[in-house]
Design a protein around this nucleic acid. Structure first.
Lengths: 255, 255
DNA sequence: AATTGTGTTCCCTATGAGCGAATACCGAAG
DNA sequence: CTTCGGTATTCGCTCATAGGGAACACAATT
């Protein structure tokens, strides 16, 4: 009887499928034998899964090795485009990054985690592509905290129960009460601040995007800690960030 | 015994999973009952799949309905970024669209089908986002034909066997011999032409991108038939298109 | 309070997912 | 061109489990 960590039944074959995809990604393509060994499955089983995936475009066999297929890209584009905040935020984020020179991000929440849906580079050398499409825990992220601050209390607790408050640096908020206190402050102030709580040397400011009385996501500006730490810089960025979120909210309203 | 159309065994649960994803997309989110009815499955089965998907981020439950989850976006970004031609072609395509005013596309082949990996709007009103991430059959697409022209003959035949040569308009090449003849012409000429063979009123020119002696994809310029049909226009566009593919090949070489 | 629609849980049973072994393929080495 | 060592793929079997059905829980309407 296959079941997940919380003891509820799941579909084993689906888990296998996901594990294969994960492996294909980690190994940048792999063969049947390699996969079977690493997953502790029979080659025949792995093969059957792969064949099914290939049939549906979720995998490709390119010169001998299997790879993640572009059907994932199709589904992924759809999943992203479902968020009207994506369309609404694109231009404001590009503008924000251009005028501040810092990186600007769109963050949305799903199943208690944050994902970077879109980003703009500003003057930084970082390529946004490696970050867009990756998950973060909400409590280590300025945008994530901004979102948490505007979620119902019981949901916040459910999220903490599910994911915990693991430390990424010594600055990470790891205490539930402390986090709740900070969420209060964020609600008052209108934006959240992240001082190297996820990655050393990176500070960020995040503000929620709200529509129909619910948070739909957050915008964030991030950059080198030394630059952002200066008080006047923070105030200036916050100002511009909040203007940008206003723009997004307007775009959402007049979709 | 679950099996695909060609009689080879596949994993039934995977097929179910994919069918659920398809439904979620088509219906823009759906509930358990709705899905169960449409797929001819028990609610409990659908529910178990959905739970598994949610556990892994491949689905979300947002106010009562299930939706395609952003883990697909993560996997999709990865699948796209695997193609170094994507990085290599982005700027050339933007430039091509800017200087011609027509739509410019990057097309790659997977499992005998073409996918639009990237696009640039030019002066057109069409939003590229609805087209990026969608499949086309190779024979109805200028880029697809350019790719076919540089694939080994036996592979071309295998692709035709698998997908056929269905007509999309009265201009579509539906005859195998005729197609092979056209592929010869494309090889000589260096580029492929599509005269309303996929969609009425849309003409396009496509050229292959080659690297290490293999086709890695194709660039294409597409636009209103009336504009592109003029002889001098075609020659001019072809010239610029081929320059762009040269750029991409250079970018690939010096990755 | 009753009704009607959801989603979720429980438990059983037939089926097909996963297994292991046999086979086919495919280069590289002799 | 044959053999070998490594792949991928196919073939049947069998036991775990995917899927089914019914009971239950919950939420919204009336």
């Amino acid at each position: 009887m296959e079941s997940n960590e919380s003891g509820v039944e799941t579909v084993g074959s689906d888990e296998t499928l996901f594990a294969i995809v994960e492996q294909l990604r980690e190994r940048d393509g792999a063969g049947v034998t390699e996969l079977a060994e690493n997953l502790g499955l029979a080659k025949s089983s792995v093969h059957k899964h792969l064949r099914t995936m290939v049939d549906h475009g979720y995998a490709v066999k390119r010169d001998g090795t299997y790879h993640v297929g572009l059907e994932f890209f199709r589904a992924g584009e759809y999943a992203r485009d479902r968020y009207d905040i994506y369309r609404a935020a694109k231009t404001p984020i590009d503008d924000l990054a251009a005028e501040t020179g810092e990186m600007a991000w769109l963050i949305v929440e799903e199943n208690g985690r944050a994902m970077y849906l879109y980003g703009s580079r500003g003057d930084s050398e970082v390529s946004v592509e490696t970050i867009v499409g990756t998950w973060r825990l909400l409590h280590v992220n300025s945008g994530g905290k901004a979102i948490l601050a505007h979620l119902p209390d019981d949901e916040v607790d459910r999220i903490i129960d599910a994911h915990g408050l693991p430390a990424h640096t010594e600055n990470t908020v790891t205490d539930r009460a402390e986090l709740h206190a900070e969420l209060d402050r964020i609600r008052e102030r209108g934006y959240a601040v992240n001082r190297s709580e996820d990655l050393h040397g990176i500070h960020a400011i995040g503000a929620p995007v709200r529509h129909d009385g619910a948070v739909r996501g957050a915008l964030a500006v991030a950059g080198a800690a030394r630059r952002l730490a200066r008080d006047d810089r923070e105030a200036d960025l916050a100002e511009r960030l909040l203007t940008a979120t206003d723009d997004v909210e307007v775009n959402l309203a007049y979709r």
